[in-house]
Design a protein around this nucleic acid. Structure first.
Lengths: 195, 195
DNA sequence: CTTCCATCTGACCGATCGGTCAGGGTCTGA
DNA sequence: TCAGACCCTGACCGATCGGTCAGATGGAAG
């Protein structure tokens, strides 16, 4: 009753997020987004400088969290780094299921855009942390498979509640990560003080 | 041996494979492929009916192997299904690193093309087998993360020899798969006899 | 020589892309 | 009443896309 304030800006953002996850960034045209919102393509470009700016605003919160995770990771090594990386990334992936799914496959090209500067380096560090900073191929491979798999997968479980998905992914990550430093079967209760 | 037979057909195929893995199917134009081969765009379309036919011929061997894996999987249950699915898919992913990387992210749209009929159902069955045919969310999630992760990742390890990559991925898969109710009745892998 | 056929090409097509632009409504505050 | 900010639009632009087509080239067969 009060007022039907349109909030076209937000509607465009939401429609873009929906379409990007289905058809991908490249595969979604501004026309498609405008059609879903019910406005003209020119309106989309009135609210956003260009298509890239739309994507950047869409991804901003997720990128912010990724950056702070990167800060947390700085200085950590070994099993501690693995645990923080796993927890942090699973949290991030679950919270931003849609946003992360947007990047699906178009990662390499999208990373060239200035809005995503340094994202490549950050995810490289994240992968390195998840591998326990080991250079063993097995550890590196496991880390990459986990990161890619979680990213790819969590967009497809829209029906599973956040908590359940987070728990399942974290359990999986802990099981899948290649144990570092001490491949012995005894429980890893001791945190390493040096490396 | 000094034969200067051009084999333009094969060169186009190889160039397309290379470019698709880097820029994706949608992101690669026929012009791009022609430029790399050193011929005209019309030549590409002389050798292939259209862009989709090029992709189809590129993926045919991988799809054939995927189909036969699907046949092997029929009738298997529990841990046996998990093991066969893991081994089969890791083999396939390593052998067809490039081909699989092509589909990167564009899976949902590409699957609509007639050349890829039933691929969706086959990979659903594969995922189900890897989950030990369990309907527990944890098992389903682990299976999807593994399939997606392995697909995504193995294209990035061009520097690692097949054998090493296969072993690392298989070890990871066995570690990451959620164990089904019934453990393996006998020590796993009486393998090492396969060709 | 002529004929034939496989190969290859430049010119061209319609469609669609992201993006620009001038201008038309609508609301508000002076 | 009017100026100006805000929101929105149709028409249009150049570029590029996948794809078509008539014709040039060159080697083998007759």
């Amino acid at each position: 009753m009060a007022r039907a304030v349109p909030d076209t800006h937000g509607e465009i953002l939401a429609a873009a997020a929906r379409q990007f996850t289905v058809t991908g960034y490249r595969g979604t045209s501004l026309q498609d987004i405008a059609r879903e919102v019910g406005c003209s393509k020119a309106t989309v470009l009135y609210h956003f400088a260009n298509k890239e700016a739309l994507l950047a605003e869409l991804m901003a919160p997720a990128i912010e969290v990724l950056r702070s995770l990167d800060d947390q990771l700085a200085g950590l090594t070994g099993a501690a780094a693995q645990e923080v990386a796993a927890q942090g990334f699973v949290d991030l992936a679950v919270r931003f299921r849609q946003e992360i799914a947007v990047l699906r496959g178009e990662f390499p090209e999208l990373l060239c855009q200035p809005a995503f500067a340094h994202i490549q380096e950050i995810s490289d560090r994240l992968r390195d942390a998840l591998a326990g900073h080991s250079d063993r191929p097995g550890a590196r491979i496991a880390a990459l498979v986990l990161l890619a798999g979680i990213s790819e997968a969590c967009g497809e479980f829209a029906d599973i509640p956040d908590d359940e998905l987070r728990l399942a992914l974290l359990t999986l990550a802990r099981r899948a990560v290649e144990p570092v430093d001490a491949p012995l079967p005894h429980p890893p209760t001791t945190e390493d003080k040096d490396s």
